[in-house]
Design a protein around this nucleic acid. Structure first.
Length: 558
RNA sequence: GCCUUCGUAGUUCAAUGGAUAGAACAGGGCUCUUCUAAGGCCUUGAUGUAGGUUCGAUUCCUACCGAAGGCACCA
């Protein structure tokens, strides 16, 4: 990367102790890179740099406390060449040959897949792809709660209202009905003591599998919801390598807790707990006590998480990093579990990474699948698809192409609205606001790509071949942004933050759209047309690659 | 009460301790005999409060105000 080259050059030329702090000027007119100096040194430093000027740098200027570097025409044209020839565009060695597992999405069977899961999925998938482009061997994992009170609540609801068990053609409808049953069961559990008792009984029977009737509903419901999830993953563009099931983790975790009883875990009020506050370290977030085995001798989620982590390291024995993506409400709890695991397996401590994202909520409060006031993933996608359908109805695509575009654009709108902001932030759900097709949006990026693609088709038809060797009279903002792509990817990957890429792509797309609006790219009478075509190619490559890293596809037409 | 995260245009979001705090939406005005107008070009508008560290603070520290999440048998 040119960034590293310039950094090293400054460091060596000026004989700096530490790393040179290099930045991009806020305003691109001030240059391509800037080095912050001190008033007493700036003259001498600029002079020295000029004496040992790099070939890629055309001019060096002093402005205030900054030494600004303008890259050369030659550099930009060769950067276009590099983009066109680089098969692994944006790739880096940050995580070369590391084995990394990313766990995300985690919807529970018998519960609705809501937009919080969509959020986890969008972020987890993007992080997986960032890890992948950084040279790691990534595996995608999902973790699903197949037993527990939520299941009993749904089954209770299904038994109360047998219509909800109707076997219709659509998996989506069946799964939706199970979601309704879950909301009914949840309300009853909280409001009616008799129903609560019934649900608790069902819960026991789900564990013991003693009732044929309940088993039949369970098996059907499990299959339906898991199939519905699979349909969604397909739409969203995720393919999981491993599915971990909560019930299978209980015994594994319980054995570990029992083996470490008296050492790490201790008895307290009939339960087995981990008093994590004993291990508090000054300057680090405070830990607290959590129950691992209840006084009824049932393993809690903590124990299952423990089992899950062990199972992951068993699944991939030489795993270098295990990443878990969840909502931030699990942050404190996860810190405690992570501490417990670190005490049992100190070698895992540095390998576990918990990435938290914000929550999807309504303007007036939290969404709760228990209360039934959630937006399901299915409904959000289909509502968005309806808007896209309306938008492209005038265009003459065949039905298969049309359906594909509708799906791709709707998913882009949703994913982009999640990924454009930093991972930790909450998203206030507002259909009008969060799903946009213009401006700062996924469809804007896709539209820019489709237009570039259309230009390239015209160029091909008119036999104007891309040629980056023609030095254009003027370098535009497009070139000045395109070469930065690998830097942005590296930063995104290092910080596990997809939004840097999202913001960068918008900037590049805006610059290209402006270029597009002010230039006729394909023009036989223009000597620079071949260069402009090459530039368009480079833009399309970068945009497509960047969209891929966000888990968004780039339709050729839309 | 304690812990964590966060307060930036009317709204939704940006800004590795650096230049005149960027976009988008909403509002106002232009722009399709030209490669997709989901576009382009103008335009109005913001760092919660009070201190501190620094040559320089939206960014770091302290206090206050406000929001979200968490704090023992749910996940």
């Amino acid at each position: 990367m040119i960034q590293d080259k310039i950094k090293n050059w400054i460091k060596e030329t000026l004989k700096l102790e530490g790393e040179a702090v290099l930045m991009h000027p806020k305003d691109i007119k001030n240059g391509d890179y800037a080095f912050v100096s001190m008033p007493e040194h700036i003259g001498a430093q600029a002079k020295k740099l000029k004496e040992h000027q790099l070939p890629e740098i055309e001019t060096i200027e002093i402005a205030g406390r900054f030494i600004n570097f303008h890259l050369s025409h030659q550099f930009f044209s060769s950067s276009i060449e590099e983009i066109l020839n680089n098969k692994n565009l944006g790739g880096n060695n940050l995580l070369a040959d590391k084995k990394i597992m990313v766990e995300y999405t985690q919807p529970n069977p018998f519960k609705p897949f809501h937009i919080g899961h969509l959020m986890s999925n969008a972020i987890g998938e993007s992080i997986s792809r960032l890890v992948e482009i950084s040279g790691a061997e990534v595996s995608r994992a999902n973790y699903q709660g197949d037993v527990g009170l939520h299941v009993a609540r749904a089954i209770w609801g299904l038994m109360k209202d047998v219509k909800l068990q109707e076997q219709v053609d659509s998996i989506a409808i069946q799964s939706h009905n199970i979601g309704l049953a879950y909301a009914d069961g949840s309300a009853a559990y909280e409001n009616d003591p008799n129903s609560k008792k019934e649900i608790d009984e069902i819960n026991m029977k789900v564990y013991t599998r003693e009732s044929d009737k309940i088993n039949a509903i369970y098996d059907w419901g499990f299959k339906v919801t898991m199939e519905a999830f699979e349909d969604l993953y397909k739409k969203l563009g995720t393919k999981f390598d491993f599915y971990f099931i909560e019930s299978a983790m209980a015994d594994i975790g319980s054995d570990i807790v029992n083996d470490n009883l008296g050492k790490i875990f201790e008895n307290s009020d009939g339960a087995i707990v981990f008093k994590a506050e004993k291990y508090n370290i000054e300057g680090q977030p405070k830990l607290h006590t959590r129950v691992f085995i209840t006084s009824n001798n049932l393993p809690t989620y903590e124990t299952k998480e423990l089992g899950l982590t062990m199972e992951k390291f068993k699944t991939i024995p030489d795993m270098d990093r295990s990443i878990v993506v969840t909502a931030k409400e699990q942050m404190d709890y996860m810190r405690v579990v992570t501490k417990a695991i670190s005490l049992i397996h100190p070698e895992y401590e540095k390998k576990m990474l918990h990435i938290t994202h914000g929550m999807m909520r309504f303007a007036d409060g939290k969404m709760s699948s228990r209360k039934g006031n959630v937006i399901t993933g299915e409904s959000l996608i289909s509502d968005t698809e309806a808007l896209v359908t309306e938008k492209i109805k005038e265009r003459s695509f065949d039905q298969i192409t049309k359906d594909k575009i509708i799906n791709d654009v709707a998913v882009a709108a949703i994913k982009y609205s999640i990924l454009k902001q930093n991972t930790g932030g909450d998203i206030v759900y507002d259909f009008e606001n969060s799903i946009s097709f213009e401006g700062d949006s996924g469809p804007y990026l896709q539209y820019s790509y489709a237009r570039a693609n259309s230009v390239l088709e015209k160029a091909k038809a008119e036999n104007i071949l891309p040629d980056f060797k023609i030095l254009p009279a003027e370098i535009t903002e497009v070139e000045k942004l395109l070469y930065r792509f690998p830097e942005i990817v590296a930063r995104s990957a290092a910080e596990y933050e997809p939004h840097y890429i999202a913001n960068y792509l918008i900037e590049v797309a805006r610059s290209f759209n402006s270029f597009y609006g002010n230039n006729q790219i394909v023009n036989k009478d223009d000597k620079e047309s071949s260069y402009k075509v090459a530039l368009t190619f480079a833009f399309a490559f970068v945009l497509k690659k960047g969209l891929h890293l966000l888990g968004i596809s780039a339709p050729e037409k839309m």
